[in-house]
Amino acid sequence: MIENLALLINETEKLISNSITRKFKENGIEITFEQYTILNNLWNTNSLSQCHLAMLTNRDQASTSRIINTLIKNELIVKRVCAKDKRINRIELTEKGASLKEPVLKLINECLVQTTNGLNEEQIMQGVDLLNTIKENLNK
């Protein structure tokens, strides 16, 4: 059983992210789950360095840059050179990007309700605790 844990976690993550991306498209929101993770971090702080976004989303710089470039092309974010340090790119939301917060979070909630259907609060919290412990172990 333990040898299948990594595969099960990976398969579950893909199913959840694909379900969320599909839900976005069905509701006319043209972003992917990966793009959502970048936007979600910006909705909480409004401006972050590209490097910090990569760290927060557990992605390498190249993947983060690709996602950011797509979000810029879709006019959801802008990239600005930091005034104090020209080597740093600050990523900021546009009005269009900020306006997606409410509808996107509503759809995320709908997906999570479907994902946890049949589970009670205690089971959900045990699952969250398990995943947090695994995450902490991997970050040591």
Rank of each mutant, 00 (worst) to 15 (best):
T115S: 06
N40K: 11
R22E: 15
N137M: 13
I91K: 03
N132W: 00
I38Y: 01
L56H: 03
I77S: 01
T32I: 02
T21V: 02
L107M: 12
F24Q: 05
F24Y: 14
P103E: 12
K79R: 15
L107D: 09
K106T: 13
L48R: 13
L76A: 04
N18A: 00
R22Q: 14
W43C: 03
I9N: 04
T116H: 11
I68W: 01
K86V: 11
I124F: 05
E75L: 06
S47K: 13
T94D: 09
I16H: 02
K84H: 08
L131E: 05
C51A: 08
I68M: 10
E34L: 09
E110N: 13
N40R: 09
N74I: 04
T37W: 00
L93I: 00
S17Q: 08
N46A: 05
I88Q: 03
F33N: 12
G97R: 04
L112W: 11
R59N: 10
A54M: 01
T70A: 12
I77K: 02
L112V: 06
S17K: 09
G97K: 03
L7K: 14
E92D: 11
T21S: 14
K25D: 04
S17D: 07
L100C: 03
N58S: 13
L56N: 12
K73Q: 13
T45P: 01
K96E: 14
I77Y: 04
E92R: 13
L76H: 11
N120A: 01
I31M: 05
S49D: 10
R87K: 15
